[in-house]
Design a protein around this nucleic acid. Sequence first.
DNA 1: AGATAAACGAGACGGTACGTCACGTCTTAGG
DNA 2: CCTAAGACGTGACGTACCGTCTCGTTTATCT
Lengths: 211, 211, 211, 211
Amino acid sequence: MSEQDLPPEAVEEGEKRRVGPRRSEASTNAVLHAAYIELSEHGWRGFSVDRVAKNARASKQTIYRWWKSAACLSVDAALGRLAAVRTPVGVDSAPADVRDRVAALIEPMLLAVRTGDGAHAWRGALLAAADDQDAGETFRAWFSEKVKIPLRHILAEQALKGAIRRDWDIDLATELLFGPIWHRLIAMRGPVPESYSRRLVESVLKALAPN
Amino acid sequence: MSEQDLPPEAVEEGEKRRVGPRRSEASTNAVLHAAYIELSEHGWRGFSVDRVAKNARASKQTIYRWWKSAACLSVDAALGRLAAVRTPVGVDSAPADVRDRVAALIEPMLLAVRTGDGAHAWRGALLAAADDQDAGETFRAWFSEKVKIPLRHILAEQALKGAIRRDWDIDLATELLFGPIWHRLIAMRGPVPESYSRRLVESVLKALAPN
Amino acid sequence: MSEQDLPPEAVEEGEKRRVGPRRSEASTNAVLHAAYIELSEHGWRGFSVDRVAKNARASKQTIYRWWKSAACLSVDAALGRLAAVRTPVGVDSAPADVRDRVAALIEPMLLAVRTGDGAHAWRGALLAAADDQDAGETFRAWFSEKVKIPLRHILAEQALKGAIRRDWDIDLATELLFGPIWHRLIAMRGPVPESYSRRLVESVLKALAPN
Amino acid sequence: MSEQDLPPEAVEEGEKRRVGPRRSEASTNAVLHAAYIELSEHGWRGFSVDRVAKNARASKQTIYRWWKSAACLSVDAALGRLAAVRTPVGVDSAPADVRDRVAALIEPMLLAVRTGDGAHAWRGALLAAADDQDAGETFRAWFSEKVKIPLRHILAEQALKGAIRRDWDIDLATELLFGPIWHRLIAMRGPVPESYSRRLVESVLKALAPN
DNA sequence: AGATAAACGAGACGGTACGTCACGTCTTAGG
DNA sequence: CCTAAGACGTGACGTACCGTCTCGTTTATCT
C-alpha cells in the first residue's frame, strides 16, 4: 500500500537473496531527475541517454541495467513526479460530490503540468509512451490503475443512481475526460487554467447524462 | 479554389520570375511518399531522413531545401494524404443534419487512420507536430482551417437556433471532439471502429447542449 | 611568341567558325582570380569550386566548360600569375654570368612566392599538380618549357666550356635546382630570403662541377 | 629505447591511472593500414575518412578520437611504414664511409617508395603534411629527428676534418639532399632507381665541399 | 530583321563525404 | 556484483561540395 511505485523493477518478488551491493537509490534518483530535466529541455526526439548519464554522473551501463529503453526511463521520470501530488483525499470512500471525485482523477496531472517545466517534460514523456511499445504499456498500466478503474467505480455508482445513461462506455468516458487535456497540452501547447478542470468535468458528465 | 495545398512553397505569390530549374515535382512526391512509409515503419523517434532520402532516391540536400526539419516533412507527408479524402460534400452550405456536418470534420482523419498503415503513420506525424515547434505550427494551421473554423460556423448556427448552450467555447468544443480520437489512437493504440464517429459526435453535442 | 599562354583552350586551331558569343574574358579572369584567392585561403584540400563560382560571380557550368577539374584551374590560376613577372631580359641570348642566367630560371617563382599570399597559393597549386594527373601534366609542360629546356641550353654550353662535368644529367640538375625550393616552401613552410637564390645556384653549379 | 613511436598518444606520461577500457591496438593498426591503402588508391584530395573507417571496420569516432584530422592520420600511416625498414646499422657511431652514412638517411624512404604502392601513398602523405598545419608539424618533427639531426652530426664531423666547407648551412644541406627526392617523386612522378641514392649523395657532398 | 546557336548567371538535382552526436554493448578498475 | 568512466562499431545528423542538368537571358553570326 505504501510501497514505492518506482522503480517497479526493484521489487520483483521472486528475487532470491543476492550477494553484493543492491541497486543504488542515489543513482536511481539522480537518473530520474536528470531524465526529467532532459525531457523538458530537449523534448522526446532530442532525448539523449548519454546526456542523462553525464548529468546524473551515472554510467550508461547503470541506466540500461534498470530501464529497458530511453522511452521507459522517460515515462518513469514523469510518472514519478506524480507520486508526490497524488490524491490528498481518499478516492473511493469519500462521500464528496461526484464532480470533485472525477476532478480528482485529472487534477494531479494538471497540477504537475502547471509547475515549472512540467508541461515540456510531460509532453515528452507522453510522446515517449506513444512512440514506444514498452513505455506505452507502462503508461497504460498506470493510467488504468489511477484513472480508468477509479472512474469506472464512480460511473457505475452514478449509473445505479440514474445520474448517467445506462449504456455508458468506460472507454469513451476516459477518452472524453483525458483526451481534451492531451489535445490542449500536447498538440496545441496551450495553457491549462485553474478553471479548466471544472468545466471539463462538467462537460463530460453532461455528455454521459441519460437521454 | 482547386489549388493544391502542398507544397505551399510552390505558390508563394511574391516570388519574382526566377531563372534556372524549378522544384522537381517528382522528387517532392517521392519524398512525401517515402516519409509516410518511414513514419509507419519506424515511428517518430526512429524516423531517419537518411532512409527517406535513400528510399525516395533523393538527396538529403533536396529534402532540407524544401522542408525545415524532419518533423515538418512528417506532418506534410501525413496531411498530404488527407487531401484526397477530404469533404466529398460541401461543408458550409449543406442543409444536412448537424450530426453529419460535425462528423464530416473528423471523418477524413478517421478514414485515413483506418487505411493501411495509416494509424502508425498518423501517430508518428502527430508526435512530430507535438515535438517540434515549426511542425506544430503547420499542423495547427491545418487544424484551424479544416476543423476549428468550420466547427465554429456550425456551432454558431446551432447556438442561434438554441440547440447548444449560449456560452459555448470553441476551444473546449474542439478538444472534446478531437481529443478523444487522439487519446484512443495515439496513447491507447486502440482501433477506431466505424461506429465511433457517430457516438463521439453525439456525446460532444450533448455536452454542449443547453442547461 | 607574344601569344597568350592562358587560356590555351581558346586557341585551338582546328576550330571552325562558330555562331554565338565567344568565351568571356571578364569571366575567365574573375574565375582565375577567385581561384587564386581560394587557394591561398583554403589550401588545396579545402579548395571549393562552389566558392570560386560564387566569389567570381560565375556559374559552375562556366568553370567546368573551360577547365577539366579543380586541380587544372588551380594550376592555371597560379601559373597565370607568373606571366607578369617573367624574364624581363632574354634568357638564351644574354652574355651574362652563368649564375645570373640560372638564377633567372627560379627568380620568377621565388618572387611570386614572396608577394602577398603567394606562398599559400603556390603551395596549393603545386599540391594540386602533384595530386592530379591532368593538372600535373599542365605543370610539367610549363616546367619543361620554362625551366628544363632553358637550363639544358645553359648547361650544355657550360659543359662545352668545361665548366661542368661532362656526364651531367639534366634531371638531377633540375632536381637539385628546384627541389630545395619546393622542400623549403611546401614542406617546411619556411621563408625564402633574398639571398637564397644566389646560394642555391652556387651550390648547384658546384655540385655539377667537374671531378 | 625500444619504445614504439606510434601511436604517440599512448605514452603520454602525465596520464594518471584511468578507469575503463584502453585504446584498442587492433583498431589502431587496422586504421593505419586502411589509411595507407586509401592514400595509395585515392590520393590526398580524394582521401575519404568514411572509406577508411569502413575498410578498417572501425568507426569514424574512433578515428577522430585518436587523430586530429585526416591529414594527421595520413602522415602517421606513412611514417609508420618506415619504422620497419629503419636504420639497420647504428648511424652515429659507425666508422663507415661518409657517403654511406648520408645515404642511410634517405634510403628508408626511397625503399618505402619503391615497394608496392609506396610511391602513391607517400605522395599522398607528403601532400597531407604540406596542406595541413598539424600534420605538417608531425612530419617536420619526424624529419628533424630522423634526418636533420643525424645529418648535422655527420656534417659537423666532416667540417672538422675539413672535408666540407666551414660555413655549411644545415638547412641548405637538408634541402639539397631531400628536395630532389621530393621533386622527382611528387611533382614529376618519376621512378627512383637504385643508383639514384649514390649519385644524389655524391652531388650534395660535392656542393658542400670547401672552396 | 529574324533565326540559330553558343555562352552565360543562377541554381536544383542525386550523390558522397564531412565532423559530430547518440545509440547500446563491452572492458577496465574501484568499492 | 554494482558502479563510474569511457572505448568500441554502428548509423544518423545537418552541411558542404561534387559534377551534371535545366532554365531563361544575352550576344554574336548566318540566313
